[in-house]
Amino acid sequence: MSLLSVENLRVEFPSHQGPVEVVKGISFDLGRERLGIVGESGSGKSMTGRALMRLIAPPGRVTADRMVFDGQDLQTLPDKAMRRLRGARLSMVMQDPKFSLNPVMTIGHQMSEVLEFHGRQNRKQRRESVLKALRSVRIDDPERVYRQYPHEVSGGMGQRVMIAMMVILEPDLMIADEPTSALDVSVQSQVLDIMDDLIRYKGMGLILISHDLNLVSRYCDRILVMFKGRIVETCEAGQLHQATHPYTQGLLASVPVLNEHRNRLPILDRIQLGSV
């Protein structure tokens, strides 16, 4: 049985010219695997992630024929149950750790609070779990980080803390929306490697949302390519370079490579693609 099953998911926002659909009916299934969603800005990839977490606030509207997570219908679940589900079984890592952490609370305190909210363990056990989670994201002196405030840690460290915070409840599915695009390249691969290890080790599902084709093909098993709110291509990560849709091909071609000999980079013909 699949972990997550989505059919005909649509997200729309009202505007002066009537409602605008940013996700136009996408369907996919996810097991305990690593799924990448790639697209450019405006493709609807982030909205898809947010819709799954039910984080789209009115006036935005989410509809789907089916949106089931491990037997639970995400559309009809009451808000309270959804809050329990979020974090405990379904969690999300956002782009910039600085905005996702509470600046006036120590990291240890925030992480313990997450455990407390989900009613697990007593105070001492909670502290142990937090330190263990920090260690699991390869933080060498978790005791110190435990006492630090978010502004006292670097970007890479902050993002590791975010991941520790997500995995502390051992969720079944993690949604990571551009988890490393605010970080330096060398730190980027470090953070992603840590995330990847945890996911494999704990057997979680992962949805990695990114604009970076190479990154997604490296860390995922399967890739969905989104363009203007639709999935235009689905492929195995290893076969990305045999992609058939002109958008995917165009996207791949327009990225410069280390050994670049082209005098001009090919440009996507958006008008022509719009009609595909």
């Binding site: 450019e40 604009h211 084709l213 327009s254 990225v255 980079l265 090919p266």
Partner: peptide, 14 residues
């Protein structure tokens, strides 16, 4: 910028 837009801007700069 998005990669496809990056390509346009890089071409322009070149």
């Amino acid at each position: 910028l998005d990669v496809s837009v990056q390509a346009e801007v890089l071409n322009l700069l070149k």
